[in-house]
């Protein structure tokens, strides 16, 4: 890939980390015939590595031109030794992923999440794999459409004794951003610094 383009191929270490993450999110097979690209940026003084996914054909078609603004889909970013999906990445996982951690919320909570609000225990109608604290989780509505990405504040399982109005998932990013700020660029980092 041309050095004129700000995107690069992942290093061996990054690729290992990404493959492990893609396996966690159930998109390992989906990504196999796609091209993964990395773009390094500084965000509020922190170095971040954005992860892009595109078709092989699109990466081949890329021109050695400095005017390139964007490639494929920004599916998330690498922060230290973890991959955090962006909103577009969360949506992709919800459509093609298998066995990923999710929480389904009721219609009342759906409206609140779309304004960036956190999720109370009483709003949850279904979930998967939230037994640990600080688990990053896809937030779905009752039609199983991704509306956001959150992080658990307490472990949740069938033995949990949690009061209904306790915040159990902090919303990291939500699809309401597309409406609130058209100029918003999806980094998936809104509240995760």
């Amino acid at each position: 890939m041309s050095s004129l383009i700000p995107h690069r191929e992942p290093t061996r270490e990054e690729l290992t980390l990404l493959r492990r993450s893609f396996d966690h999110w159930g998109i390992f097979d989906f990504v196999l015939d796609k091209e993964i690209l990395i773009r390094e940026k500084s965000y509020n003084g922190t170095r971040i590595r954005e992860v892009y996914l595109t078709t092989k054909d699109n990466s081949i078609l890329l021109s050695e031109n400095t005017s390139l603004s964007y490639i494929g889909m920004l599916i998330g970013h690498l922060k230290r030794r973890s991959f955090v999906p962006s909103m577009a990445g969360a949506d992709l996982i919800s459509r093609v992923g298998v066995n990923f951690p999710y929480v389904t919320v009721n219609q009342t909570a759906e409206a609140l999440v779309l304004y960036g609000r956190d999720i109370m225990y009483a709003s949850i109608v279904d979930y998967r794999d939230l037994r640990k604290n600080n688990t990053i989780v896809i937030i779905l509505n009752e039609n199983r459409v991704a509306i956001g990405l959150g992080i658990t504040t307490v472990p949740i399982d069938e033995n949990s004794h949690i009061v209904d109005n306790r915040i159990v998932i902090k919303t990291i990013v939500d699809s309401g951003h597309y409406l609130r700020n058209e100029r918003w660029i999806d980094t998936g980092m809104e509240r995760n610094n």
């Binding site: 595109t54 078709t55 699109n58 603004s69 494929g72 889909m73 597309y178």
Partner: peptide, 28 residues
């Protein structure tokens, strides 16, 4: 292709929202 740099964020936003991954945007 989009010549007006100020309009590119709206393109990126719409491509992201619609799950498009086969596109590259050039500001020329």
């Amino acid at each position: 292709i989009e010549y007006n740099r100020r309009r590119i964020p709206s393109v990126i936003s719409n491509l992201s929202r619609c799950g498009v991954m086969n596109t590259s945007i050039y500001n020329i």
